[in-house]
Amino acid sequence: MDYFLELLIGGLTRGSIYALIALGYTMVYGIIELINFAHGEIYMLGAFTALIVASVLTLHGMTGLSVLILASVVAVLYAAAYGFTVEKIAYKPLRQAPRLSPLISAIGMSIFLQNYVLLAQTSDFLPFPNLLPALPFLDPYSRFIGPTEFVIVLTTALATVALSCFIKFTRLGRAMRATAQDRGMAMLLGVNVNAVISTTFIVGSALAAIGGILIATHVGRINFAIGFIAGIKAFTAAVLGGIGSIPGAVLGGLVLGWTESFATGYLSSDYEDVFAFCLLVLILILRPAGILGRSTVQKV
């Protein structure tokens, strides 16, 4: 039973990170039907920025939680600025182009950003400090859940609720849904569609950066390539849940996290990725639109 709980919480932690990144994929896809392959790199940039800011602050004698909070705020803003800029440079000029063009542009952006960090920083893994304070109320459960796991799950839950409320209840959120459903009509009603698309990139990038900081804290080291596999996994989660659907991205992330966790725990840890992608293939065969996805109705 203990082992089961350990795997359950391990899967929940993993899945939460996938979910945070998957939200960015699914939001961007919902609005402009683009798989933003550079999204994983934004996550990596978030982690790097946090590391750099945290190092500088530590050099100046700051310690503990305040360093983490300050570094996170800077990293989230920085990553959001990156997301905004990537869209303006790599996707906006291709808005009217065939759908393959922005996809290629996205892959190019991903390669560019990875190599930029590789050259500007290093190819080695860098240690990432764990700046979370001890959470004594977790001590009785320390066999299953540590402070980082707890913070990861809590942050994901809060971020998801905040995002859902934003999309459901605000004027801009409503405009985002309208734009996703019929961009031309949204324009006819006075929506500045470019601003809505930029907002989507900014919000998605901020969430990815939060994910990057959390996972770096959890794992304790980062390098320029961490965005690649995390990006692929989160993309899988988004497709699994139904791309374009926000609850779908969260559910897909959790399902993927648990699948990996239980499969490695009970079967074999060598095949972690194999299980993840087998699940993807299975879902695509049985439910091509994803778990919560809407099958597209051809309008006549």
Binding site: A178, D182, L188
Partner: peptide
């Protein structure tokens, strides 16, 4: 403009569609 084919936002409620008009 009321474009050809009406182009209602299918997954927004009637009230939300109207709110989009007053965007």
């Amino acid at each position: 403009q009321v474009p050809e084919g009406r182009r209602i936002f299918p997954h927004l409620t009637v009230t939300e569609n109207l709110a989009m008009g007053a965007f």
